[in-house]
């Protein structure tokens, strides 16, 4: 089973690599942000998969939980920044 999960993780990472094209190319900053968002979600899932592959150290789950929260905060903060420019948020 752990080999199968490893294969799934590799497939997801290849998928994220393809998304990198949009991050490099994307005409607007928002396009890049969308690409980064997909890559973030893939990384989250790969963390969870490696939790099962690496014989379940609890640490991985906590890291994944925090990663999910950070992913959300990064996206919202960056899009607020793109929306308002450099002005402080009010």
């Amino acid at each position: 089973m752990s080999r199968f999960l490893l294969a799934i993780a590799i497939a997801l990472m290849l998928n994220a690599l393809v998304c990198l094209y949009r991050v490099v190319r994307g005409p607007t900053a928002q396009d890049r942000l969308i690409g980064v968002n997909i890559i973030n979600t893939s990384v989250l899932v790969v963390l969870l998969l490696s939790f099962f592959v690496a014989d379940r150290p609890t640490m991985y789950l906590d890291i994944a939980l925090v990663y999910a929260l950070l992913n959300f905060i990064v996206t919202v903060a960056l899009s607020r920044f793109l929306e308002t420019g450099r002005k402080p948020l009010g």
Partner: peptide, 18 residues
Amino acid sequence: AFLLLSSATCGHAIGRSA
């Protein structure tokens, strides 16, 4: 649960910024 809540909000935030 957090993913289901947050991803829609993320999409909204990006769309709004554009």
